[in-house]
Design a protein around this nucleic acid. Structure first.
Lengths: 110, 110
DNA sequence: TTGGTATATTCCTATTGACGTATATAGATA
DNA sequence: TATCTATATACGTCAATAGGAATATACCAA
């Protein structure tokens, strides 16, 4: 993956929110949708966008698709992702999402 | 500046090259053009793009416009920029640009 | 004041991106 | 097999982006 493609993945607010969630570990699409409270098609397309640019990979388990970061990302990408993880607490939207993620993890929809 | 706008600035290869150069310090447009070996209008527009999104600022000195990073960027932005600076050596294009920058600094066009 | 140099802007075109509606697909289950 | 659930894709629309050609602007210098 070239670097500008990586940054394109981060250049949309919805995708940034997804990345913020996935930094905590793999998630299935329904969890992401629920946390973002966005339309199904919107979530799915942004996930597809990041998958096609090789930032994310999918693993299917039974009925559910779990997305996670691709292995061996560029060091610059890793470093940028780490920065997002570190400073997400300063961002209202990202923090709310992380709180919703906590709640979601106690669920067992998938 | 919101975060996705910052990443939009990094989401184009030409802008990444410019950012890589400016990490070494302020530069005037003619130096940037010369190093990138890109058309004047292309360079100027990308600089304008990043200025309008408040990643860069301009300081005019005599006939020349010097671009540099805006003060007090978001910590995530600073961290991402630092990652680019650290790992630029691994990128062929960015490395060549930095070498050209060295040569350019010995000039005195501006 | 005339011209030159550095840089930005306008106009045009082609491409990409974002989002919604509707529909398709894949796998699980009854 | 029929259907349900989870998810992706196709299609249409509108906005944003990238890049080139031509032109404008701002400042300097003669």
């Amino acid at each position: 993956m070239d670097l500008s493609s990586f940054y394109k993945c981060l250049s949309d607010p919805t995708r940034l929110r997804i990345v913020n969630l996935l930094l905590k570990g793999p998630l299935c699409v329904c969890q992401i949708q629920e946390i973002l409270q966005e339309a199904q098609v919107k979530t799915s397309k942004h996930l597809g966008y990041m998958k096609s640019r090789e930032l994310l990979i999918v693993k299917r388990k039974a009925n559910w698709n779990f997305y996670e970061f691709a292995p061996s990302l560029h060091p610059i990408a890793l470093s940028s992702l780490q920065a997002i993880e570190t400073y997400a607490v300063d961002d209202a939207v990202l923090t709310v999402d992380l709180n919703r993620l906590q709640d979601s993890l106690t669920n067992d929809c998938c």
